[in-house]
Design a binder for these strands. Structure first.
Lengths: 221, 221
DNA sequence: ATAATGGATATTGGATCCAAAATAATTTGA
DNA sequence: TCAAATTATTTTGGATCCAATATCCATTAT
């Protein structure tokens, strides 16, 4: 058995591709909250049939990015203050838990990678790109925790939160730099062996973000 | 406009029905862990086409009850000690959080309903039925928290945990009674206004369950 | 005898077609 | 003129059909 052969990459299914595209569009604010996402339109835009589109919408529904009504269609649910509050409360539990589990496994090399992400993050001005780097930071950090299910749950929460982040950035500026600085500080604390301090800093970081969102966004409910 | 007309219940889609049936089967241990779930077989068994079956499998994949490989099919993933440990660690964070939020909203009437669930739970001997009542207890309790997203996340974890619960019950007996007694104790504490005590008891309850599973099940990884 | 190769079979993924339901347009009645 | 009812159109959900890929089996070569 050949190594190259056994490690050949399997192309993803088109339903997954469609889901990724729609996910990006939704997070970019492409679809209004009260507007149905028409299957036929997506299908013709992407040059596929409606079948993979439907499966993609089903997947996105499971992620909470759309809701579907029988014989009516799928649409992006309204942002709600209650939901984002819950998201931040859960982040406040999950992320410290993951960081604590990750710290013993964080090597010099991981630290360097994280620093490079923060560096790149500083230079970036585009909000979407910044969100991507933000995601990469958390992803590489928590990957060290060896808790794939928890990471999966967290990533779903972060994806949902991205919609709110988008709205927030339009209103409040300068938070980006603060966030990068806080990441930097967490890295510093980890590096100097102060794990508990890093976890505390993270808790603060999340708490501030939550506060920031609450202050910035005015939402019904 | 007629009230009866406006409150008419909308039949769910067949894909959702198929998903529910398959979910129950999986939790009942109907499918071996290494055996592919054939779409055509399910379709003919249920008298539908493969389309809703495929959508159901997509949904179950999102819930973590099956994994799918392109052009190979869907199968129930192996139980792993790591996963069940994560589930219990997350339950240990989420459930106290939800109970705390619920307590101020728990009325006399809710207490009564919960007591009736525990009563029924005592009489039941069938493991599947007991699991259902267990689920109902948690569901009605946490519904008072007004945190739908967190409840959704928790319910997915409980569903996943059900698979392990099944295995556990075959091996250890008597845990059922203990669990009911613990539920009773939590209710008592809530009723006498000792909210913090109830939350602590719940934490203990989950911790014991986790310990029980760890002790009882021998799993690779 | 065993491993490799080529083809038959089974199974999934995607496209097209049809049915059911919702929404929009039109007609009709007062 | 306006509202209710009726018809037409749109859109989704499901079934059938076709293509792509994996698995199984036989044949062949060493």
């Amino acid at each position: 058995m050949d190594l190259v052969e056994s490690s050949k990459l399997v192309r993803s299914t088109t339903a997954v591709d469609v889901a990724r595209i729609l996910r990006n569009r939704i997070l970019a604010g492409h679809y209004a909250e009260d507007q149905f996402i028409r299957q036929e339109l997506i299908a013709s835009e992407l040059g596929v049939s409606r079948i993979p589109v439907r499966e993609a919408l089903a997947q996105l529904e499971a992620e909470g990015l759309v809701v579907r009504q029988k014989y009516r269609g799928a649409l992006v649910p309204k942002l709600s203050l209650g939901e984002i509050q819950e998201i931040y409360e859960m982040r406040g539990m999950l992320e410290p838990y993951l960081l604590e589990a990750a710290i013993p496994n964080i090597t010099r090399e991981v630290i360097d990678r994280l620093r490079s992400v923060v560096e790149r993050s500083r230079t970036v001005r585009d909000i979407t790109e910044w969100a991507g780097l933000n995601m990469e930071f958390h992803r590489t950090l928590y990957a060290q925790a060896n808790k794939p299910l928890s990471v999966q749950v967290l990533e779903n929460l972060l994806t949902r939160a991205d919609r709110y982040l988008k709205v927030q950035r339009f209103l409040s500026t300068g938070t980006q730099e603060e966030s990068d600085a806080e990441h930097q500080r967490i890295l510093d604390l980890i590096e100097e062996g102060n794990g508990a301090g890093a976890v505390d800093a993270l808790r603060q970081h999340i708490s501030w973000n939550a506060e920031d969102i609450r202050r910035t966004i005015g939402l019904d409910d």
